[in-house]
Amino acid sequence: MTKKYKIISKFIKDLSSETPNVETYLFVRDNISNYQLNINITSKALKNKLIEINTTLKFEDPSENTHKSHFEIVSATIVQVTNEIKEKDELQKIILCDVQNEIYDELTKSFLNLLHNSGYPNIKFEKKIDFEELYNQKFN
């Protein structure tokens, strides 16, 4: 099966690590296991069958404590789709599933570098996100 899209370019649009003070750093370091990885995917149509896909990863503490650090990366992927794409659901699958599967490993590697360089060297994301499964849960 031939791909109906081509990744033209990708780049880090925004990168953020915020730890306001030493007390917060020490608290977060001891409680980093409470943090969860969240993902958000948005897209915007451009000219000439181009689409900008923004994939945001946030590593955050869902609890209500006052000592929190903020970690976020936004990756932009520019994709050109072929004329063969006629259905909206076909385009959705490319944006939410196919492109994500292609960029995810590199994106998480960049994000983990940010976390490690921010003073949290032992963080790993054990579970790889199954975009195919998430897509099927949402749309089937």
Rank of each mutant, 00 (worst) to 15 (best):
N101T: 09
T55Y: 06
K109R: 10
S69K: 04
I95P: 07
N54I: 01
E60I: 06
K58C: 06
Q80M: 13
H116W: 14
E106V: 01
L115V: 07
T77M: 01
Q80L: 04
T77S: 09
Y120M: 11
I39G: 04
G119S: 04
F59M: 06
I85P: 02
K109V: 02
L115G: 00
S43I: 00
H67P: 00
D98Y: 12
K88M: 12
S43W: 13
V79G: 03
N83G: 14
E106P: 00
D98F: 12
E87F: 09
I95L: 13
I53P: 05
K88T: 14
T56G: 01
I85S: 13
T56E: 01
C97A: 04
L50Q: 14
L50S: 08
N54P: 01
N117E: 15
K44L: 12
T42I: 02
E90L: 06
L57S: 08
L107C: 06
K68T: 02
N122R: 10
K44C: 01
F71R: 09
L114G: 02
T108L: 09
I103N: 02
K93S: 14
K58T: 09
C97L: 08
D105Q: 14
I95R: 12
T42H: 03
V99L: 14
I123R: 15
L114Q: 11
